[in-house]
Simulated scan of single mutants.
Amino acid sequence: MSSFDIDSVRIIGRCFMNFLLRIGNAFVFFIQSLYHCFIPPYYFSNVVRQIIEIGFFSLPIVGLTGVFIGAVIVLQSSLSGILINQEQVVPKLVTITIIKELGPVLISLIMVGKVGSSIAAEIGTMRITEQIDALTTLDINPFKYLIVPRILASVIVFPILTVCADLIGIFGGYVTAVFEFNHNLNIYIKYTAQFFNMYDFIVGLMKATAFGAIISVSSCYYGYHCREGARGVGIATTSTVVISSILIILANYLITLIHA
Rank of each mutant, 00 (worst) to 15 (best):
100 K>R: 09
67 V>S: 05
87 E>P: 03
106 L>K: 05
74 V>Q: 04
63 G>Y: 06
103 G>C: 06
107 I>Q: 09
62 V>M: 04
92 K>S: 00
103 G>Q: 06
73 I>D: 08
71 A>M: 11
68 F>E: 12
109 L>F: 01
104 P>L: 01
65 T>L: 10
91 P>D: 08
86 Q>L: 13
109 L>P: 05
83 L>W: 04
109 L>Q: 08
88 Q>S: 05
85 N>P: 13
79 L>R: 00
76 Q>L: 14
78 S>D: 00
67 V>N: 03
62 V>R: 08
82 I>L: 14
70 G>W: 09
90 V>F: 15
98 I>H: 07
80 S>I: 12
66 G>F: 03
100 K>I: 02
84 I>P: 01
63 G>S: 07
67 V>H: 01
71 A>I: 06
98 I>Q: 07
61 I>C: 00
60 P>N: 01
89 V>M: 15
64 L>G: 12
69 I>L: 11
81 G>V: 12
93 L>E: 12
84 I>M: 05
68 F>N: 03
87 E>L: 10
61 I>G: 01
74 V>G: 05
85 N>D: 15
91 P>E: 13
71 A>G: 07
89 V>A: 15
104 P>D: 12
77 S>G: 05
91 P>K: 14
91 P>F: 02
77 S>F: 07
62 V>G: 05
83 L>V: 06
108 S>G: 02
61 I>R: 03
68 F>Q: 04
60 P>L: 00
93 L>A: 14
79 L>H: 00
107 I>V: 09
84 I>C: 01
89 V>Y: 14
97 T>V: 09
84 I>N: 02
108 S>E: 15
86 Q>T: 10
100 K>A: 03
102 L>D: 13
89 V>D: 11
70 G>N: 12
97 T>R: 11
71 A>R: 05
75 L>G: 06
66 G>Y: 02
76 Q>V: 13
73 I>W: 05
105 V>F: 00
70 G>Y: 10
70 G>E: 10
76 Q>A: 11
63 G>F: 08
95 T>G: 12
62 V>E: 06
108 S>W: 14
82 I>V: 15
84 I>E: 02
67 V>I: 09
90 V>I: 15
102 L>F: 15
83 L>H: 07
92 K>Q: 00
95 T>F: 08
104 P>T: 14
61 I>L: 03
60 P>S: 00
101 E>C: 10
80 S>L: 13
107 I>P: 02
107 I>L: 07
70 G>M: 11
101 E>M: 09
93 L>P: 06
73 I>Q: 07
60 P>D: 00
78 S>K: 00
72 V>H: 07
80 S>E: 08
93 L>Q: 13
96 I>H: 09
94 V>T: 11
92 K>C: 00
74 V>P: 07
85 N>K: 14
98 I>C: 12
102 L>K: 14
94 V>L: 07
102 L>A: 15
104 P>V: 07
100 K>W: 04
107 I>A: 09
76 Q>G: 10
65 T>G: 04
95 T>C: 14
81 G>N: 09
72 V>K: 09
83 L>D: 02
81 G>D: 08
88 Q>V: 08
